[in-house]
Computed example of a mutant assay.
Amino acid sequence: MRIRTGFGYDVHQLKEGLPFWLGGIQIPHTHGALGHSDADVLIHVICDALLGAANLRDIGFHFPDTDPQYKGIDSKRLLHEVVRLLQERGYQIGNIDSTVCLQLPKVNPHIPEMRRVLAEVMRVDEDDISIKATTTEKLGFVGRKEGVAAYATVLITKA
C-alpha cells in the first residue's frame, strides 16, 4: 500500500454583506468571504491538500479564477471533481485534519453539519474528517476580523 500526505493553506478577505460559506454550508453572519467562487476557504484547503498529496498541482491550476465558468461556483462541486481526479488515479482518502482561523462567527456549533456535508460530497465516513476552529486572540488580519484562514492535512492511500 502506498501512503501519501498533503497540506493546504488558504485565506480570504471578509466583506460586509456577502454570504459566508464554510465547509459546504452557509453560516449566518454579517460578513462573507470574498473570492471568485463562493470563497469557501475550508473546502479550498481540503482540495489543495488532496491535490498536493496526489501530486496534481493545486486548486488554482484546475479551477483558475480567470475562468468565468467558476465565477460564484459552489465549492462543493470543485471538491467533488478533486475527489474524482484522485479516484481516477487509484487513490482513496484516509483522513482529513483541518483548522479554521476566524474571530467571528463562532464555528464550533456548525462543525457537525460541515462534517456531514463534506463526508457526503467526498463519500467518506464523517469520522475521517476533523474540523477544528480557533481564533488568533485578536492578532493579525484574522484577529481584526478582516479575513479568514484555514489549514488542512490529508492522508491518501493507493493499493
Rank of each mutant, 00 (worst) to 15 (best):
residue 122 M to I: 01
residue 71 K to G: 05
residue 63 F to V: 03
residue 110 H to L: 08
residue 151 Y to L: 15
residue 129 I to A: 01
residue 87 Q to E: 15
residue 159 A to I: 04
residue 147 G to W: 06
residue 38 D to V: 00
residue 121 V to F: 02
residue 115 R to A: 04
residue 110 H to C: 10
residue 154 V to I: 14
residue 125 D to F: 12
residue 12 H to D: 15
residue 95 N to H: 14
residue 26 Q to G: 04
residue 57 R to Y: 11
residue 94 G to N: 09
residue 37 S to C: 11
residue 123 R to Q: 09
residue 110 H to A: 04
residue 72 G to H: 09
residue 147 G to R: 01
residue 2 R to H: 12
residue 101 C to K: 11
residue 57 R to F: 10
residue 113 E to Q: 14
residue 152 A to K: 03
residue 130 S to V: 11
residue 87 Q to P: 07
residue 84 R to E: 04
residue 100 V to C: 07
residue 108 N to T: 15
residue 154 V to F: 08
residue 10 D to E: 13
residue 79 L to I: 01
residue 125 D to W: 08
residue 36 H to W: 12
residue 41 V to Y: 00
residue 147 G to Q: 14
residue 136 T to L: 09
residue 65 D to H: 14
residue 22 L to E: 02
residue 74 D to N: 13
residue 28 P to W: 03
residue 105 P to C: 07
residue 99 T to C: 11
residue 130 S to Q: 12
residue 63 F to N: 00
residue 155 L to Q: 06
residue 26 Q to A: 09
residue 86 L to E: 00
residue 143 G to L: 00
residue 96 I to L: 09
residue 105 P to Q: 03
residue 6 G to K: 00
residue 53 A to W: 04
residue 103 Q to Y: 06
residue 5 T to V: 15
residue 47 C to K: 01
residue 136 T to H: 02
residue 125 D to K: 15
residue 90 G to C: 08
residue 118 L to M: 03
residue 102 L to E: 03
residue 137 E to C: 00
residue 33 A to Y: 05
residue 16 E to N: 07
residue 39 A to K: 02
residue 69 Q to C: 06
residue 84 R to V: 06
residue 34 L to A: 14
residue 31 H to C: 13
residue 54 A to C: 04
residue 97 D to Q: 10
residue 81 E to T: 09
residue 64 P to Y: 10
residue 133 A to C: 07
residue 157 T to D: 01
residue 12 H to L: 01
residue 94 G to C: 08
residue 123 R to F: 08
residue 135 T to S: 13
residue 151 Y to M: 14
residue 146 E to V: 05
residue 109 P to V: 12
residue 56 L to V: 11
residue 143 G to C: 06
residue 78 L to H: 12
residue 82 V to A: 04
residue 77 R to A: 08
residue 92 Q to N: 08
residue 40 D to R: 06
residue 136 T to W: 05
residue 114 M to E: 00
residue 22 L to M: 13
residue 144 R to P: 02
residue 29 H to I: 01
residue 66 T to W: 01
residue 45 V to L: 03
residue 60 G to N: 14
residue 107 V to E: 05
residue 72 G to V: 00
residue 155 L to W: 10
residue 3 I to M: 14
residue 56 L to S: 05
residue 90 G to L: 06
residue 133 A to S: 09
residue 65 D to C: 10
residue 142 V to A: 03
residue 1 M to L: 05
residue 105 P to R: 04
residue 82 V to N: 09
residue 136 T to V: 00
